[in-house]
Simulated scan of single mutants.
Amino acid sequence: MGSWLDFSIISKNLTYFFIGSYPHGHLGGVALTLILAVSSCVLSFFGGLILGLLSISHIRAIRYPTIAIINAIRGVPLLMVIFFMYFLLPGVLGHSVPEVNTVIAALTFFTSAYMAQIVRAGIESIPKGQMEAAISTGLHPWQAMFYIILPQGLRNMVPSFVNQFVSLIKDTSLAFIVGVSELTHVATQINNRSMIYPAEIFLFISVIYFVICYAFTSLSRWLERRLSWHKSIG
């Protein structure tokens, strides 16, 4: 029986915690967690941008269904979205889908709804007079949106995007439920092999999650200060 808080199990499996069985097997651990988070964040940025723009459309047939979709997604737990993607995607596509792609699709689908709210709030934070002034110069409304309103709004959205990315990193831990070998799944595998160091193992991955999330939270605060400084001198 191992001694209390014996972290030798961590040092023996350190490489496995960070990259899984790669290069002799599948990539996993911290590396796969970051890949899931970054891929989903990039895709959900564009998904949220599209949904956010559609949710403020003046065409009711577009705006109302989009808002309904966003609210429906936000009202469902992420775990259920992962299950939906895991079981429904193969049937829709007609072939099996790798678990990693399933999780990326679920995280993208789920996070896009939250990104859409950030986009909507960022655009609505810009005074309406700017849109009216841009249109009065001869610009089409969509030109005014993309060249005048959206660039200003995106600057206001950056800190919120980073915070959402931090939340997304923690959400990747739910990928273990469908067998994706990210950090939590790797920790569970090591714990199942040893059976006597659960406190040490899960304390260690908690520290890893904290370090990653704290780094990006600090980045968010730095961006907020930088953007506030540029706005004050602008």
Rank of each mutant, 00 (worst) to 15 (best):
G2D: 14
W4H: 14
L5Q: 11
L5Y: 14
I10R: 03
I10M: 08
T15C: 01
H24Y: 15
G28T: 11
V30K: 07
L34A: 03
I35R: 01
A37W: 00
A37G: 07
S40I: 10
S40Y: 03
S40K: 03
V42F: 15
V42Y: 06
S44E: 13
G47Y: 13
L49R: 01
L53K: 07
S55D: 02
I56Q: 06
A61H: 06
Y64E: 13
P65V: 09
A68F: 15
I70M: 12
N71P: 05
I73Q: 10
R74H: 08
G75D: 10
V76G: 11
P77E: 07
L79K: 07
L79F: 13
M80S: 15
F83D: 10
M85W: 13
F87I: 08
L89W: 09
P90M: 01
P90H: 11
V92L: 15
V92C: 10
L93E: 02
L93D: 03
V97R: 10
P98S: 04
E99M: 11
E99P: 05
N101E: 12
T108N: 04
F110H: 02
F110R: 00
A113P: 05
Y114S: 05
M115V: 13
M115S: 05
R120V: 06
I123Q: 02
S125P: 00
I126M: 07
P127A: 14
A134L: 00
I135P: 01
G138R: 11
L139A: 00
H140W: 00
P141M: 07
I148H: 08
L150F: 14
V158L: 15
V158G: 09
V158T: 10
V162A: 09
N163M: 03
V166Q: 04
V166Y: 09
V166A: 03
D171V: 06
T172N: 04
T172A: 00
L174K: 01
L183Y: 03
T184P: 12
T184C: 04
T184A: 01
H185L: 11
V186W: 00
V186S: 01
A187G: 02
T188C: 05
T188V: 03
Q189K: 11
P198D: 10
P198V: 06
P198T: 07
A199G: 01
A199T: 12
E200N: 06
I201Y: 01
I205V: 09
S206P: 04
V207H: 11
F210G: 03
F216Q: 11
L219S: 09
R221L: 13
R225M: 11
W229F: 14
S232G: 00
G234E: 04
